[in-house]
């Protein structure tokens, strides 16, 4: 099938304003949008800039807005988008070049939430591991799947309005640690979430849940955090 690929282009060294460029390509329905971009870069226009790394939906580098919806280019099959495909950078972050955005505000927000395991208690008597039941591990299993691709955060209208807002990805990480029975910094994280730019900015729009390529139930996780703030229950 012939695919018309419309790509957002912006080179700050040359362009005063962003523009779109259109490429016509032969593609199989099972080709991925990333394959099309690679083909354009390899054979038509080497100046096209985009991020990619593993190309298998694990590294989270190639989050893009494809036909208006955030997705990983390496998981987006041509057959799901049709013959006309528009590829743009994810929204709410400054464009550095073409499809590459400045991820700094995203990771700054991620760091705020203390994205690491905190437990200052002495090790158990046997000196080995901090044990956890299957049920306790299951409690935060969904939010361990996050790959920090930013599809969720950059689909959130609150984040578009201000990159000061923590965003869904940071809250997913907060959920992952707050509900971990071995972690001891739930209180500190809830205090961070309760700040003005924190969880109160979530208006339950559900864009994050729909955008997540890992199918994490993000809005549900944020709802559980809100409930934990009100009830104090971390189970």
């Amino acid at each position: 099938m012939e695919v018309t690929l419309k790509v957002f282009r912006f080179n700050p060294d040359v362009d005063k304003k962003w523009r779109y460029e259109t490429y016509k390509l032969e593609a199989d329905p099972t080709d991925r949008v990333l394959d099309l971009l690679e083909r354009v870069k390899g054979y038509t226009d080497g100046s096209l800039a985009f991020r990619r790394s593993c190309a298998h939906g694990v590294c989270g580098s190639d989050a893009l807005r494809i036909n208006g919806k955030n997705s990983l280019a390496c998981k987006a099959l041509v057959r799901d988008y049709g013959e006309k495909i528009t590829v743009e950078p994810i929204m709410g972050l400054k464009v550095i070049k073409d499809l590459i955005v400045d991820m700094k505000p995203f990771f700054d927000n991620y760091k705020k939430i203390l994205p690491f395991f905190i437990n200052d208690s002495p090790l158990p008597a046997d000196g080995k591991e901090r044990r956890q039941s299957i049920e306790q591990r299951e409690r935060f299993d969904d939010t361990t799947k996050c790959i920090l691709c930013a599809c969720c955060t950059t689909s959130c209208p609150s984040f578009w309005a201000s990159d000061d807002y923590l965003g869904p990805a940071a809250m997913v990480t907060a959920h992952r640690f707050i509900f971990d029975s071995r972690d001891e910094s739930a209180s500190e994280r809830l205090h961070i979430l309760s700040e003005t730019s924190g969880i109160a900015r979530c208006h339950t729009v559900f864009n994050c849940t729909m955008a997540c390529p890992r199918e994490i139930q993000i809005t549900k996780a944020i709802g559980e955090l809100k409930l934990a703030m009100v009830t104090g229950n971390l189970e």
Binding site: S194, V230, N233, E235
Partner: peptide, 21 residues
């Protein structure tokens, strides 16, 4: 052991109270 945070340790501030309100 049930994990529950007392009200003083939940970051209960204006934002949270108004969210609940």
């Amino acid at each position: 052991m049930k994990r529950t945070l007392p009200i003083s340790k939940r970051g209960l501030n204006f934002e949270t109270i108004m969210w609940f309100f």
